[in-house]
Design a protein around this nucleic acid. Structure first.
Lengths: 213, 213, 213, 213
DNA sequence: AATGAATGAGCCTTCATTCAT
DNA sequence: GATGAATGAAGGCTCATTCAT
């Protein structure tokens, strides 16, 4: 009985189901039994195929992140020598879509946020490795926008402002939305939001730059 | 010291310990047994004094929020007719301090963020009731800054930008710090950050306003 | 603070409340805390006044039985030399009313039945002591009706038939009523039932007597 | 013998032990731990195989009832057009044996009575579904014996008299025996009791019939 | 390669009772 | 005489993991 009825092997099915369940409930609230049940596998399957709940989670997470990067690359197809304002726009575009575009990314965005909010020890190291390039790229753009005299502290503060505007959308979207905003961020309006954050941030960055002169 | 004169000691000790443990581990990972052990109480103490783990959690949360509001009131002592830019500064000041100032607030900030990241059903209702006034206040300031012709969508987007810059500091501070920023936000530098976010945001808001003209 | 607001002392109030709660839920499902709460006493009151849950229960039971006997004495006011058929009627009358007449007896009947269905070790001894006289009286009447040649086995069988018709009313009234019978035995109809059981039993006894001739 | 080839052994052993323990102590006083211990199983075994204490209890109860009906079918092998007095005899025979014949039925009778005396919410529904046919059958026989002019009230009263004579045997056998009767109802004498109840009841029914003329 | 029965540690909660006041 | 805070034993249940097949 090596083959499944649906032609997907147990390993992949587990991974697929686990992505959904982990994304919705988080690591701690997800039970191995539920994943196996939804995968039409037996309860030992997770341990058999992945060596434990934590290992499965790590694998799910790697897949999610890789997929997010693949679909929405940070450069957005731009040449490295494009104007920094355009590169910032591309970066915000990719970051926001990764987080909010459930439709295309499956559960990658949700898992990313879940993990950031309540990090598992297993994942900390991966997170850092994967995020470092993103940080460097964004930092470079902001540094360019601020000019050669920019001090580290200001760069970091602007970096925070830009990135936090994007990331917080994921965290707070569901919790805060009904009570917080009148405008619901549907997938169709993500691009509006991208434009807003870009414009808002470019002005903000410029303002802190003038300050330094 | 098996028996005490009144239950206040045990009650308060339980609450204090619970604040710490809940803040550090979150609701789900905290065990009643641990709280009782650290409080030098019996395992039944939580049920006796609070009626259950969830009730204790709710109480901890209420205390944390009340304390945060008390120490850092949203108006920051400003008159209601102060200039909107000053009121925005005061608001960002109080919000950021509530979130980041562990020293003065104890565990209020951590618990607030924990709950936002991984909301418990118990808390949703409270959260909304308590946050609504804050949102209204902020929204009012931004509307003032944007002028009478501002459309809801733009107001909401600016509201997001401002609030998210602040809130995300809490979520991401620990997780992101080492890999993300060179500058560590110590308590001494919170005020720098407040100034930055205010300046950044005022410029951002102004930029989206010009757009609409 | 020796006196209560309502002028009933704690001891009696506990007893009264306990009668109700024990009758409704049985010994095991009744909690000391509930009795004390309904009595507006503190949780230690039961232990303080009665020495424990079991002791309180025993007291409640004694009261219930004594009250039942007092209100409906087994002889029904008849002279000992009344015709046996009348004395049987009086006995069935008193037994059935004790069991079914909640209105007048308070919870005596319910407790009696509760205990018979699921006897507590504490109570067994009391039950036997109190029931023995009743059994003897009933046995005497039936023996008279069966005549001098009656054998013990027949006397016992008729005794069972008569008593079980009455007692089972209590056990099965609530459980069996809706599904079992179209006729609901309200308090107004108890006397009809008394007449029925008397007539039914007299004929039954007579029939077994003829058999022996 | 920690692991078994299939779960049937453990499952059945659990069921068997549970039947005994539930029958002897009732639902509330039976602990899952005891059942597991006596079954040489782990404490989690009940939850694994049955989904909880209540589910196990329901299963035990279903088995007990099914077995009782199987061994002593209500018609006792009689044709439906047999004389009503014979059908009544068959019905009393099967009912009484179900209740009293521990030897053949295992613990079916005890559980049946336990549940009737102290009904669990879980079981109420089942009880009614299973007992309804029995009631209808008995009611039909009595109606036949009473003749076409019988009124509902009289039918119900006779139905009570017949059924209660049988059922009460189960409830009261152990509690009442020593103090109540000289004759112990051993299994050998059940048939004597069946004959007695049948004769007693036929005469009783006839007596109430004459009354109506 | 895969299964599923079985495990045991751990969790939250209930409750009768105790004890210092 | 009365209180109520505190206790600890016990109960049912969950869940990731193990192991014999």
């Amino acid at each position: 009985m090596a083959y499944r009825k649906d032609g997907i092997d147990t390993h992949d099915k587990l991974l697929e189901v686990a992505s959904i369940v982990f994304a919705e409930k988080g690591y701690r609230d997800t039970t191995v039994a539920e994943i196996c049940r939804l995968s039409h596998s037996n309860v030992a399957a997770v341990n058999y195929h992945f060596g434990g709940k934590d290992k499965l989670y790590e694998q799910v997470w790697r897949n999610a992140f890789a997929e997010a990067i693949r679909v929405y690359p940070p450069d957005g197809g731009l040449e490295p020598d494009a104007p920094p304002s355009e590169r910032l726009h591309a970066l915000i575009y990719s970051l926001l879509h990764r987080i909010l575009d459930d439709g295309r990314l499956g559960y990658a965005g949700k898992i990313l946020l879940q993990e950031m909010a309540d990090p598992t020890e297993v994942i900390r190291r991966i997170l850092q490795n994967l995020i470092r390039p993103l940080r460097q790229r964004t930092r470079g753009i902001i540094k360019e926008l601020l000019g050669p005299d920019a001090i580290d502290k200001n760069i970091d503060f602007c970096l925070m402002s830009v990135i936090h505007q994007c990331l917080a959308m994921g965290f707070l979207r569901e919790q805060m939305h009904p009570p917080m905003f009148k405008t619901k961020v549907t997938e169709e309006r993500i691009d509006d939001l991208v434009d807003h954050i870009t414009r808002f941030s470019l002005a903000g960055i410029a303002a802190t730059r003038e300050e330094k002169l």
